[in-house]
Amino acid sequence: MTTLVDQPPAAPAAGARPPRRRVRARRRRIALPYLLLLPALALELLVHIVPMLVGIAMSFRKLTQFYIRNWSAAPNAGLGNYRVVLDLDSAVGRELLHSFGVTVAFTVVSVGAAWLLGTAAAVLMQPVFRGRGLLRAFFLVPYALPMYAAVITWAFMLQRDTGLVNGLLGLDGPDAPFWLIGGNSFWSLVVVSVWRTWPFAFLIVMAGLQNIPQDLYEAAALDGAGWWRRFRSVTQPLLRPVNQVLLLVLFLWTFNDFNTPYVLFGESAPREASLISVHIYQSSFVTWNFGLGSAMSVLLLLFLLLVTAGYLAVASRRRRVDA
């Protein structure tokens, strides 16, 4: 940083040396944008960049509870942590793989449903009708609600004996199903997650629709295109760039989601709904083996980077083919 700031100004025009005041002013002008960025940069370094590097370093160490207060003294583990985490014969490896599978299934179902609901609502609310503005505001409430308040409410609704869900389904007595433990907990998690994320999809698709020029629809209508044809040939292709970004963001959010399962289930998520973030959290803070936890986090990061890079490559190739 300082080297950039102290850089001498570009060589002055041949001949007379410029007055010192002007040199200083010029130097200040070059330094100014960096000075303006400095606080943001320092904090990003402290909270994001440095911890990420430390995390990668930690994953190569035998960092157990004895070294928490002085982590640099932890013995080197080489690839040992990775070997443990990826060993499918060990309990740790098997549980990680299980959690990964649950997370993939959860992400595919939740993102698919949230995207579908958001798109359907946005497309169906495209024409102006009475109460549209009000309805739009109403649909955005789940997005604005503090996330824990919403999820706690769902936890209440999903209580077996006193909850709204069993009340709505008319299930009570000894045969009433549990929603927060066992196999049902996976679907509870999906429903809560979709409830929280579909308004975001709705918001983004709605903004995308507003950017489609109205005369395209009118031209298509003049050509005799029906509603469905207009949707297929105007709406869909013009929404594609928006959808590409939207799906990527939804994927990353949902795959990394910690808050929803943590608030819904508390410290111990049921095995059927153990998402990867919660799994890493639990295995780190139960055993206080941060080396293993970091190795899992690094693997998660690598997976996300791979998927994102692959997705962007496919998306941009498609765009080029279309062009």
């Binding site: 909270v47 911890p51 990420m52 995390g55 990394n256 973030s277 780190s284 936890g293 986090s297 998660l300």
Partner: peptide, 9 residues
């Protein structure tokens, strides 16, 4: 990036 990645470090 996943929050869990920053949390432990």
């Amino acid at each position: 990036f996943p929050g869990i990645l920053f949390l432990l470090p």
